[in-house]
Every structure is written in structure tokens, then in C-alpha cells.
């Protein structure tokens, strides 16, 4: 099968969906040339640097029968649009009694590792998960990126796509033929029987690397990638933990009130799953600090395959 990059897979999704649906349009402070060439400057607009207005405009256009795509570029810039996200987009369908739909895709990159320092290295998806009314995807491969973005554009709700900065150049198999990936369906990226690692985005790949190392030590690791944070495929995660009896959650974000905390709770508050646990749940997250610039500092902040493997060894030896 052909191989394309994570970034190219996203662009393919946009091209296919914009061709498929004339009500889609794309706003970004920097219009992507492949989209401008294909769809023109009416539907693909380079905008003033005004993310707050763009985020709000998406809501009005969606309520008027369109399917806007807003590229915030980095999640950093979504914060200047928080009123429009928190007070408007997430609530508008509910507070108006569901009288019309608001299909919107907000897109941004997340994560660190590129020495971009505190503002441009964030993974704040749990801030958005805390709101009711937004769906969100966090793809880890080119295949998932394309399939989930296509679903996101067709969804009738505001959806945020968090795309991992570290993965943009990653190559992977993406079929030529059309496909979509449903929301709320986790992907078991590797099957195993001794311990479940639920890993997010870039850390899926670190978890897979850790699993290789651990296999040599006689530990069989299952790697579960939720792929969508809202909705969360709780049942697949719980079923995996009931099978293995052990859970490690790996997330590039900090631990406090994070997606990792949510996943751990979804497992432990279910009595059938809780009874199967043979060890305490462990989380491998970023340190709870703003992301520093210097390599010697940034490298100790983020989780990696070694930290994940160490956590697995701990849960394997716990009584």
C-alpha cells in the first residue's frame, strides 16, 4: 500500500470532503495553497489574525447551512477564542433546544518536542473535554488522521481535531480508496495479555516501542489507542483491562485533571473492571510544568518509551 505523511493524509481528507460537499469552506490565517488552487479564494480564505472572530464566524456559518473548517494552526491560538469555544460553540445546540445543527471542524496541532517552549508545546485537550457539547479527535497515524478528519467534517457538531506536531512528517499506509473511521471506536494497535497501555497520539508509538522491549523481557503488552477523546470508547478500554488486569495510561499532557485521569477513572469506577485489576493504575504523563525550551529541560518533561516501560515493570511486579 502507498505511504503518505500524517500531514498529507489530513490534506487529502480536506480535498476529498470539500469536493464532496460544496457547503464546506476553509478559514485559516494562512490559506493552504493546495486548497486555494483547487477550490478558489471564496471557499478557502486567508484571514486576518483574529482567531476569536474566525471561531465565532464558524458558528454563524454552520447555523446558516454551511460546514466550516477553521484551522487554528496551533492549539495555542485557540485560547484567544475561548469565549467562542466555551460559551458559544459547545453550548449553542443545547441552549437553543437543538433547533438547528452546528457542524464545524476546528483544527490545531498539539504537543511538544520541537523546542518551541511553553506556549507552543501544549496538549490541553482535557480543558475542552471538560465542556459538554464538543467532540474531539486525537489521531496517531496517517490512516487514522484521514479517516477521522473525514468523519469530523461530516459530523453535525463542533469537532476539534488535535493533531500531534511530532507526527506531522510521519509516514504510514493510507489506501487510495475512500474510507472513514467512526467516532468512539478505539483501535487496539497491538494485542497482548499482561498489561494494557492506553496511549494518546505520539505516545501510541512510544508505547509500541516499549512493548517491543518488554516482549523481550517476557511481558505481553496490549496498546489501546482511543483515537477520539469525545466520545471515548470506554468499553474497549475496560474490556482490555479486564483481560490483562493491569493499566498504564500514557499522555503527553500533564496529569492534573487530564485525559489520563479520565481514562483511569473510567476503568476503576466500573466494578466489573475494578475487580479484575491486579495492580494499581499508573499514569505516565508530562511533568506539571510549562514546557521549557532547553533540550536538557524539555526532555525530562515528556513521557517516552523508557518511562512507559518502567511503569509497566512496576505494575507487573506489584502484588
Amino acid at each position: 500500500m502507498r505511504q503518505i505523511s500524517y500531514a498529507a493524509a489530513g490534506m487529502e481528507a480536506f480535498i476529498e470532503e470539500m469536493e464532496r460537499d460544496p457547503t464546506t469552506f476553509h478559514l485559516s490565517t494562512d490559506a493552504p495553497p493546495p486548497l486555494v488552487e483547487r477550490f478558489g479564494t471564496s471557499r478557502v480564505r486567508g484571514t486576518p489574525i483574529a482567531e476569536g472572530a474566525l471561531t465565532g464566524m464558524a458558528i454563524g456559518a454552520a447555523g446558516s447551512g454551511f460546514r466550516p473548517i477553521i484551522d487554528w494552526r496551533m492549539v495555542t491560538f485557540s485560547f484567544v477564542a475561548m469565549d467562542q469555544v466555551v460559551n458559544q460553540a459547545s453550548k449553542i445546540h443545547y441552549m437553543f433546544g437543538g433547533q438547528t445543527k452546528f457542524p464545524i471542524l476546528y483544527r490545531c496541532t498539539v504537543g511538544g518536542g520541537l523546542r518551541m517552549a511553553a506556549q507552543h508545546s501544549q496538549s490541553p485537550y482535557s480543558m475542552f473535554m471538560n465542556l459538554a457539547g464538543l467532540k474531539m479527535i486525537l489521531p496517531s497515524t496517517p490512516y487514522d488522521t484521514k479517516g477521522l478528519l473525514k468523519t469530523a467534517i461530516r459530523d453535525n457538531n463542533p469537532v476539534i481535531s488535535f493533531e500531534s506536531t511530532r507526527l506531522l512528517t510521519m509516514m504510514g499506509e493510507v489506501p487510495e480508496e475512500e474510507y472513514t473511521i467512526p467516532f468512539g471506536v478505539a483501535d487496539i494497535k497491538r494485542e497482548g495479555k499482561d498489561v494494557t497501555i492506553v496511549a494518546l497520539a505520539w505516545l501510541v508509538h512510544e508505547a509500541l516501542a516499549a512493548a517491543e522491549t518488554l516482549e523481550a523481557e517476557g511481558i505481553s503488552v496490549e496498546v489501546v489507542d482511543p483515537r477520539t477523546l469525545v466520545p471515548m470508547d470506554t468499553e474497549t478500554i475496560r474490556a482490555s483491562v479486564r483481560k490483562t488486569g493491569r493499566l498504564v495510561v500514557a499522555d503527553e499532557a500533564g496529569p492534573t485533571c487530564g485525559a489520563s485521569a479520565e481514562i483511569a477513572t473510567l476503568v476503576t469506577e466500573d466494578s466489573a473492571t475494578f475487580k479484575c485489576l491486579k495492580a494499581s493504575v499508573r499514569r505516565v504523563c508530562a511533568l506539571q510544568v510549562p514546557i521549557p525550551y532547553s533540550p536538557t529541560l524539555e526532555d525530562v518533561v515528556f513521557p517516552n518509551r523508557e518511562k512507559i516501560a518502567a511503569a509497566v515493570r512496576v505494575v507487573m511486579t506489584e502484588a
Binding site: 465565532g56 464566524m57 454563524g60 456559518a61 454552520a62 447555523g63 446558516s64 447551512g65 454551511f66 469565549d83
Partner: peptide, 25 residues
């Protein structure tokens, strides 16, 4: 009528998006 809004200035960009939709349409 695209709604009343509890946030002062909250509606201005939303209706501007409706204006963009009208222009594209």
C-alpha cells in the same frame, strides 16, 4: 433570528459568519 446571547459582544462574530455564508451562497 440567530439568538440572544449572555456574553456581551458574543454574537458579533457569529452573525458575521452568517454574513460570510450569505456571501458564499
Amino acid at each position: 433570528m440567530l439568538g440572544a446571547n449572555g456574553i456581551v459582544a458574543g454574537g458579533i462574530s457569529i452573525i458575521t459568519g452568517a454574513g460570510l455564508a450569505a456571501q458564499i451562497e
